[in-house]
């Protein structure tokens, strides 16, 4: 008996930009790397939710990023799998809208190897006082700041996931000691020691550089505030790769202006989506990244498509999916 084709609706979001759109050509190219699915599935395409209701009515799977999540249960009777094109799912939280029979998978891991490189850059920038030198440059000030080598210094990864692990691997290659907090593991090959999140305040005083890369959940909101910053070493550096709301911006600006911290590399999501404290643009020793360094668009989309096709194979063969989001934890 011939099995019917698995119907996948591909939903693009023009706000993310054309570099991240999934096209029929890209799917065809990626399918060549996964020939076992050929002829067993069929896509439909939509963007910015135009015609979404018709498209999703017959779909077995949804491949996209933004969609009217509250209506999924009502308008998608056949849907059993949602494959996201990104890693952070906070825009979908809380997940009460997700019916229990639908698997939600993200693109965790697709940022490699670019994210490791970008975070190594941020680590080395902090060790070499680049945020301070860039601040001095804005003021036409020649002020030599001599650094010591990175080897032997300590990196604290707050939230050891894919990005933190990639940074930890790079840091180890440069001779750093890596300690980390993690929710779902007690050891990891990339870190010298892994602790539960509750130990954060014990770990902050040990680190020369702190990398914050926890997902935004109800437990992490406000995680790094004035108290936590005050526990860091005098002159330590901070990398904020986390979503808005995890690091207290006002406390951070105060610590940088007071030179309690030597520098910060701060990944800033679109200011269109949220107001930015205007002092951040000119704050002493603060470098803002425009939320793009995790992505090498060409490699990123190839990786996302590979995750999609591996999960398509898993679906067609009746195996469990990879990269499933834990609906209780929210990541």
């Amino acid at each position: 008996m011939k099995q019917s084709l698995l119907r996948v609706h591909v939903e693009n979001d023009s706000a993310i930009g054309p570099l991240f759109a999934v096209t029929a050509d890209m799917l065809a190219a990626a399918e060549e790397r996964h020939p076992s699915v050929k002829g067993r599935w069929t896509p439909t395409f939509g963007s910015d939710c135009a015609g979404f209701e018709q498209n999703i009515a017959e779909a077995d799977a949804l491949f996209g990023w933004r969609f009217p999540k509250e209506r999924i249960a009502a308008i998608a009777p056949k849907l059993s799998w949602i494959q996201l094109t990104g890693a952070g799912v906070d825009h979908l939280l809380p997940l009460y809208w997700l019916p229990p029979h639908i698997d939600l998978a993200n693109a965790k891991g697709a940022h490699k190897p670019k994210i490791g490189e970008a975070l190594l850059m941020a680590i080395l920038m902090l060790n070499n006082y680049i945020p301070a030198l860039v601040h001095h440059q804005r003021r036409h000030e020649w002020h030599q700041l001599f650094a010591t080598g990175i080897a032997g210094k300590t990196l604290l990864v707050v939230g050891l996931g894919e990005a933190g692990g990639a940074a930890a691997r790079m840091a180890k290659r440069f001779g750093m000691t890596v300690i980390a907090t993690a929710r779902r593991k007690t050891a990891d090959p990339t870190a010298d020691a892994v602790y539960p999140p509750a130990r954060l305040r014990d770990l902050l005083p040990q680190a020369d550089i702190v990398l914050v890369t926890v997902p935004l959940t109800h437990e992490t909101r406000g995680l790094i505030g004035a108290r936590e910053i005050s526990l860091m070493k005098q002159g330590a550096g901070l990398i904020n790769l986390a979503r808005h709301g995890i690091v207290d911006d006002a406390a951070l600006v105060a610590a940088l202006e007071a030179q309690r911290l030597s520098g910060c590399v701060y990944d800033l999501e679109s200011p269109d989506d949220r107001p930015v404290d205007p002092r951040m643009w000119t704050c002493r020793n603060l470098i803002l990244l425009p939320h793009s360094l995790s992505n090498d668009p060409a490699r990123f989309m190839a990786n996302v498509l590979d995750i999609f096709f591996r999960n398509l194979e898993n679906r067609l063969e009746g195996r469990p999916l990879e990269n499933l989001v834990n609906s209780g934890l929210g990541y």
Binding site: E117, S270, W281, S292, D296, R299
Partner: peptide
Amino acid sequence: QEWVPVYSGTVE
């Protein structure tokens, strides 16, 4: 004070 994503390749 401009926020513009700057995508780039992989160093390797």
